[in-house]
Design a protein around this nucleic acid. Structure first.
Length: 346
DNA sequence: AACCCGGGGTC
DNA sequence: GACCCAGGGTT
């Protein structure tokens, strides 16, 4: 049996029982694929459950406010996925009468749907012969065929896409695509793949040349930049605090946070006191300042390391409309803020 | 082509 | 702390 045929055979015996494998409805497949971008099944599963429960159809999702979608997405990261998900739901209801595009080319036009996701939906829902290339596929193919081309180069993207498209079972594209991804996720894993029990170990080039740990080849990414965040946790005499919506282009767009003072380095209480004194939310008011976390909280993102201090600012009254501290759980916040809210007793 | 966008995990 | 994982969008 050839590589592709055997993969499908392996899949039929080894696939995990996952909720999105019970359906071919484009809405559910689309939803699961967006959630699973850059995300492992274990982390995405509870979000899939809550989204399908709260928004059983694309019409329900299209009617929601973006803030509710972001709140449900809270903690999953890469929040542009949630904003695009919501925008695309609106688009499908308004412009496409609630019907998803039924082919790769048209699926690709949807916001938040790139080559991988368009191929996944087209093959799973509509049996189109469109090969998926996700991180699992890169790993399985680079090892089995001993390919050294960096997977995160444009040359690599073309090369692996073409190879996958050549290998895909033309009669069972959905099964092949899911089989190769499942095999990568559960057997041909990034670290410590189980080569001894691997059904392909006779012909796998990486295994036979002892190169399992060198493949796939990846170009190193730039080192993360350090940033210094000082969040002002206002507490007023009448039990209110301040949350602000993050605008603009950077991280956590449209999520909420405490008023932020970014500095070039870690600052002590006296330095921060001067900055708070000049702050628009204080304007000469008297205040009491204390550092909540003795040790700086380091929050690591792919491209930034955030050295974070939470400063409690006690004031008599707020200069702006604050929120009652008991309502703080209604706002979508980054996990960094969410963890603080959990440990701080409002 | 280079860079941005979260959060979770291992060693 | 250093390193690994992983799609789409923007510049």
């Amino acid at each position: 049996m050839g590589f592709s045929k055997y993969l499908i055979h392996w899949y039929s015996n080894n696939k995990r029982d996952l909720p999105w494998r019970q359906t071919k409805a484009p809405y559910y497949i689309w939803l699961s694929e967006i959630i699973l971008q850059q995300t492992q099944v274990k982390q995405g599963l509870p979000y899939y459950e809550s989204f399908t429960e709260k928004f059983p159809t694309v019409f329900d999702l299209s009617k929601a406010d973006e803030s509710d979608v972001l709140k449900l997405w809270q903690g999953l990261g890469y929040y542009s996925r949630a904003r695009n998900l919501h925008a695309t739901a609106k688009h499908i209801v308004k412009e496409l009468k609630g019907e998803f595009p039924n082919n790769y080319k048209d699926l690709l036009k949807l916001k938040g749907v790139g080559d991988y996701t368009a191929s996944a939906i087209a093959s799973i829902c509509f049996n189109e012969v469109a090969a998926v290339v996700d991180g699992n596929v890169y790993r399985v193919l680079s090892r089995y065929f001993g390919i050294n081309t960096p997977i995160n180069s444009s040359k690599g993207a073309k090369e692996f896409k073409a190879l996958a498209q050549e290998l895909i079972d033309k009669k069972k594209p959905a099964e092949f695509n899911q089989a190769i991804m499942e095999f990568g996720a559960t057997h041909c894993t990034p670290q410590k793949p189980d080569c001894n029990t691997c059904p392909f170990n006779k012909s796998c080039i990486a295994f036979n040349k002892n190169k399992i740990n060198e493949l796939p080849v990846k170009i190193k990414s730039a080192k993360a930049k350090k940033k210094y965040f000082n969040f002002l946790v206002f507490i007023s005499g009448d039990g209110k605090t301040i949350l602000e919506k993050r605008e603009g282009k950077g991280i956590w767009q449209n999520l909420y946070q405490f008023p932020l003072i970014e500095t070039n380095t870690n600052v002590d209480v006296n330095t921060l006191k001067k900055l708070v004194k000049e702050h628009d939310l204080i304007k000469g008011m008297s205040f009491q300042l204390s550092l909540y976390n003795k040790d700086v909280v380091v929050h690591k993102l792919s491209h930034q390391h955030l050295y974070t201090k939470f400063w409690v600012v006690n004031v008599n009254k707020l200069l702006v409309n604050g929120i009652s501290t008991q309502d703080i759980h209604n706002y979508a916040v980054p996990i960094l803020i969410g963890n603080f809210i959990e440990t701080f007793n409002f």
